[in-house]
C-alpha cells in the first residue's frame, strides 16, 4: 500500500497524544504526577496538540477536505466514521478535565477516566480501520489492534517521562512502566513481523480469476500500458533489503535505544535521567514513524493478484 505521509504522521502523532492523554487522565487523579498548573498546561497542551495536529493532518489526504464533516455520519457501519466520532467525543471530557485542572486546580477523577477511555476507544477505532480490510491480509489480522494500542502507550509514557523530568518530578515507578510498555510493544511488533513474513492471503491469482482448475495463472498482458490509480495506491512495493534495513532502524529507534535510555532514571537521577528522557521520547517517535511507514509499505493488496503478484 502507498505510504501516505499525512496518514503516517496522523497515526503516530495522535497515537502518542492519546497515549499521553490516557496516562494523564489516570495518573493525575492518583496523584502520581504533579498537580501544578504549569505542568497541567504543558502536559495536556502537548497531548491535545499532538492529537489535533494528527487529526488535521489526516484531512490532507482527502480529495475533498472541505466535506470532511460528513465523515461523522456513518458510525453505524464505518470504523473511519467511528474514529471521527470517538476523536471528537474525547475532546469533551479531555477539554473539561484540562480546563478544570489548569484554571481551578481541580483534578477530576471522573473526567480523567472518561478522557482516558475516549483515548483508548479512538486508538482502537483507528486500528480497526486497517484491521477490518479483508483484501489486505497483512492488516486483517489479530496483531494490528494490540500493536496500535501498545505503540500509543509506549510513546505516551515516554513523552510523559520527558515532561516529568523537565518539571523535576521523575518517578522510578514511571520508568518501570516505560520499560514494560517498550517490552510489550517490541514483543507485539516482532510478533507482527513474524506473522506477515510467514503467512499470506488465502487469495491467489487462481482464486482471483477462478481459473485454477485449468492450471497455474500468470499475467500475460496487463490491461494498460502506464500506471493507473490501482497500481499507484495499491501496488506500492518495497525492496526486501530496504524493508529489512528499515525494520532494523525502527527496532533500534523505537525499542532498543528508548529501553536503554529508560534504564537511566533507575540508576541515576538528576541530569543524566533528564537527558535520557529528552532523547528517548523523540527517538521513539521517529522509530514509530519508520514502523508506521513500513506498516503501509509492506502491506499487500489482493487486487495486485490481477496484475501479476505472486501472493497477496
Amino acid at each position: 500500500m502507498h505510504p501516505s505521509f499525512s496518514v503516517i504522521f496522523f497515526t503516530t502523532a495522535s497515537g502518542a497524544g492519546y497515549g499521553l492523554l490516557a496516562l494523564l487522565g489516570v495518573l493525575a487523579p492518583l496523584g502520581v504526577v504533579p498537580h501544578r498548573t504549569l505542568f497541567a498546561f504543558v502536559a495536556l497542551g502537548l497531548a491535545l496538540g499532538l492529537i489535533t495536529a494528527g487529526l488535521l493532518s489526516s484531512t490532507f489526504h482527502l480529495g475533498r477536505p472541505e466535506r470532511a464533516l460528513r465523515a461523522f455520519s456513518q458510525w453505524r457501519s464505518s470504523w473511519l466514521s467511528r474514529e471521527g466520532v470517538a476523536s471528537v467525543a474525547t475532546y469533551i471530557p479531555a477539554g473539561l478535565f484540562a480546563a478544570l485542572w489548569v484554571f481551578s486546580g481541580i483534578v477530576s477523577p471522573l473526567l480523567g477516566f472518561l478522557a482516558a477511555a475516549g483515548a483508548v476507544v479512538t486508538v482502537i477505532c483507528t486500528a480497526m480501520i486497517y484491521r477490518s480490510l479483508k483484501p489486505i491480509q497483512r492488516w486483517h489480522n489479530g496483531w494490528v489492534v494490540p500493536n496500535y494500542l501498545a505503540f500509543a502507550l509506549m510513546t505516551g509514557v515516554l513523552w510523559l517521562g520527558l515532561l516529568l523530568q523537565l518539571f523535576g518530578a521523575g518517578k522510578d515507578g514511571l520508568a518501570w512502566v516505560a520499560l514494560g510498555a517498550i517490552v510489550l510493544a517490541t514483543v507485539l511488533k516482532l510478533g507482527y513481523w513474524r506473522f506477515i513474513d510467514t503467512s499470506s492471503s488465502a487469495s491467489t491469482a487462481e482464486s482471483a480469476t477462478g481459473l485454477g482448475a485449468l492450471g497455474k495463472v500468470r499475467l500475460f498482458e496487463a490491461p494498460h500500458t502506464s500506471e493507473n490509480y490501482l497500481l499507484k495506491e495499491m501496488g506500492f512495493r518495497i525492496a526486501r533489503k530496504h524493508a529489512a534495513k528499515l525494520r532494523r532502524i525502527a527496532f533500534l529507534l523505537a525499542f532498543a535505544l528508548p529501553f536503554v535510555l529508560s534504564l537511566v532514571p533507575l540508576l541515576a537521577m538528576g541530569w543524566p535521567a533528564a537527558l535520557a528522557a529528552l532523547l528517548a521520547a523523540p527517538l521513539a517517535t521517529i522509530g514509530v514513524l519508520t514502523e508506521r511507514w513500513l506498516f503501509f509499505a509492506e502491506a499487500k493488496h489482493a487486487v495486485m493478484l490481477y496484475y501479476g503478484a505472486a501472493r497477496a
Binding site: M1, L62, G63, R64, L80, Y229, L230
Partner: peptide, 17 residues
C-alpha cells in the same frame, strides 16, 4: 464523497478508481 479512498482499499477486485 470526501475522497478518503477507503472504499478502494476495501475492494479486492479493484473496481473503484
Amino acid at each position: 464523497c470526501i475522497g478518503c479512498k477507503l472504499c478502494s482499499w476495501a475492494c479486492p477486485y479493484g473496481a473503484r478508481e
